[in-house]
Design a protein around this nucleic acid. Structure first.
Lengths: 220, 220
DNA sequence: TTTGAGAATTTCGTATACGAAATACGAATG
DNA sequence: CATTCGTATTTCGTATACGAAATTCTCAAA
């Protein structure tokens, strides 16, 4: 008999919904969040929306401007650079740890993700390629067995995701990226932890776009 | 003329107060948070307390138990280990980055912190030695110029702080630790980034206590 | 004495109300 | 026409209310 699962509160559901809308660009950087509007759209009272916004603010997805309400945080090149720099330390470690903890199931899942990523690139579906990119890395974090890596990087990926939904060129949407993922994963399957970590560090060092190359305004 | 500063909301103040109480052990692991009680003690209505608790839950300081309310998360050896493991990747990077960004002011502050840390160890003041330990590392994160490092590690230190307030032997409270800090900082001042990073990695690898050696229950 | 059922109480998620402050709008004045 | 001031409206932080569900307590039956 399994334990009953606990339901998410409306605060948590509102947080999830708002974060997703921000990350996929439905609510854009600089846009002000109106609590009454959001409450009506989410079909809840304003209080859970207010709490969800406080949580998003703590995680820097939205920010105060000195005026009423909060705005979605602008896409910040410095934040993006900091995340990629941070990743050059953390991703190789995650790979090293994950390599020692591979399971047949993980191998199967990893291969499926890589095939999916390549397929999305070839069909030009950038959104799904980005999702697969996230899935690939998340598999590694989970496999690393280090919950701090997983939590930290999941949050960072949400920041990257929203930056990328504003960007013309999506890093996960090239075949080169997926070939590198393939090489990294193959090294992991073979148990070559140090080699896989080195490949990942190199991947990080040149996977970071030189700049975000923001898309033209959607109005123009 | 300077910009006016924005005041913290009651939610933010309640969050700060609760987090501090949890981290210094005034509210102990396993203890259930009663919202009415807390609201009365903080002299606010229950709603900001409820919101603050949701934020603490998202950051794993408190957790659901399937019953009413939340409890302060137990001190978790695995979390502690994950943080220390994570730090072996992140702290050397922070040191490397910080070394290239030293200022006379930072040098002065760093030396003051180290002197303070040694002094607290010698006088047996473990709480203040831990604070100085945190200050030393925080200086490095700030100097690194990487906001993700700073944000992530500040949160992790809060978890470490609350673990350490339950622990008999506090890692920051030995002279050995402060001698190592001194050596690291000296290398940084000299601009020896790689050497300083190596020292930090070694420091991380043996600074982690083998186990938390939890204090006996305060009742017994 | 133990167990179970029902009633009373407590707790918390969330809706609603309140009021302060910000913002928008319209009219008057220069 | 531009600017300023007063009024109306909007927005949000927070208090309060409501109700569902959990928990505790009490009493009766076995």
């Amino acid at each position: 008999m399994e334990a009953l699962t606990q339901k998410k509160t409306l605060v948590e559901q509102a947080y999830d919904a708002l974060l997703e809308a921000i990350c996929v660009g439905d609510i854009r950087p600089g846009e002000r969040l109106n609590q009454d509007d959001l409450a009506e759209r989410l079909n809840v009272s304003r209080q859970p929306v207010n709490s969800a916004i406080a949580m998003l603010k703590a995680q820097r997805f939205v920010q105060d401007t000195g005026k009423r309400g909060v705005v979605v945080a602008p896409i910040d090149q410095a934040l993006f650079d900091s995340i990629y720099q941070f990743r050059t330390a953390v991703e190789p470690m995650a790979v090293r740890l994950a390599t020692t903890r591979m399971t047949p199931e993980a191998i199967s899942i990893g291969r499926e993700i890589i095939a999916r990523g390549k397929s999305h690139v070839q069909s030009g579906d950038h959104v799904s390629a980005l999702r697969a990119d996230m899935d690939f890395h998340n598999l590694i974090y989970t496999l690393s067995g280090n919950m701090i890596i997983a939590d930290t990087m999941n949050l960072n990926w949400r920041h990257l995701q929203r930056a990328m939904s504003e960007v013309l060129s999506v890093p996960g949407a090239t075949l080169r990226v997926w070939k590198e993922h393939d090489r990294i994963f193959t090294a992991m399957v073979r148990g070559e932890a140090e080699y896989a970590a080195r490949l990942m560090r190199e991947h990080m060092e040149h996977a970071a776009p030189r700049s975000l190359k923001l898309a033209p305004s959607r109005d123009g």
